[in-house]
Design a protein around this nucleic acid. Structure first.
Lengths: 179, 179
DNA sequence: TCCTTAAGGCAATTCGATTTGCCTTAAGGC
DNA sequence: GCCTTAAGGCAAATCGAATTGCCTTAAGGA
């Protein structure tokens, strides 16, 4: 039986927080004993629960990203996408967000299948587009949204180019006028 | 005095090749002694020359990327960009290219200034655009080229989405019709 | 409340990466 | 061809991460 409550949850959260803090502090390759020390937890617990530093990083990144920048329901596709893009933009301006995105990319070995989280995000997007289509709005494909909006935002972060304020909304505008 | 020729060059090439081979073989986190063994070189040499695994990875990645996908001079902006994009596309379909791009992103700590290689690539692009402008062609900005063409290609690789054949040329077309 | 057992802590051990001092090799200027 | 010295190799010593067996704690169902 699995025990999500109480202590387990406390340890998990403490470790996730330690990961994010250390990454944000520039300790990109802090090893497990160091992370454990920051979390006030025994290294063994981390080894047993996550097995490897990579698994831990992905878990921490996904856990945090999951709660960030949901797609709102504003009644118009333009509003939905702009709201979402602004959320992404905001989280990418935050140092923690940047570092986790980088860690996520870094630990995704090639040719494994896409991470579950990413697929879930794509599905969210598809639902939003379907709803807009049902309202009779002209809609882009998921791929187009990713190409026009997410890719430029992520590239800015990953290659250390500036994330200018309002860039999210502007990218959405560019997408919708290209339809 | 620095000695680029002969043995030094041989060691450097052997180590670079070992890095690429190991990465491509899925040994993402092969440590320095392992890399050294593959290169037929003493670990000490690597420690002394590159200092850390990260420096070595970035060096290997940049060295390889530098020789890949130059911007051709075809006489038209469309041709130049399409040629370049196809080169990028090709190198991204190659497993070595994928792995190195990922390694490059992974080891770029945030908030250091952009890597010299990336700036150089931006300058190349700017020159190509300037030449086209001088011929009287309508030209996008460097940022637009990166947003429309490079970002979507790189996102596909980094997030393990398929790089469909001809995608590079199609992205260029999308950019030029948006002008 | 009591009991079962999943999960965390501790400590000893193993294992491999990193460092360092010294020696050997071979670029590259003369 | 000779000489200087940058760069590579070797081996010993260190240092810390990872592993493992055993014990303790505390979820969570009865």
């Amino acid at each position: 039986m699995t025990r999500p409550g109480g202590r387990s949850a406390r340890v998990r959260d403490a470790v996730h927080e330690a990961v994010v803090d250390l990454l944000a502090a520039g300790q990109i390759d802090a090893a497990i004993p160091k992370i454990a020390a920051h979390a006030g937890v025994n290294p063994t617990s981390i080894y047993r629960r996550w097995g490897s530093r990579d698994h831990l990083l992905v878990d921490a990144a996904v856990t945090r990203l999951r709660t960030t920048s949901p797609i709102p329901d504003t009644g118009s596709l333009r509003g939905d996408l702009a709201g979402w893009a602004e959320g992404v933009e905001r989280s990418m301006r935050d140092r923690h967000g940047q570092v986790l995105l980088r860690a996520l990319v870094a630990t995704m070995a090639p040719d494994e299948e896409p991470i579950e989280y990413l697929k879930a995000r794509g599905d969210d997007l598809q639902r939003t587009l379907d709803a807009a289509a049902a309202r009779g709005e002209p809609v882009p494909s998921v791929d187009e949204v990713l190409d026009f909006v997410l890719a430029p935002l992520y590239l800015r972060v990953l290659f250390r180019r500036p994330v200018e304020p309002g860039i999210g909304a502007r990218l959405v505008e560019r997408l919708l006028t290209a339809l």
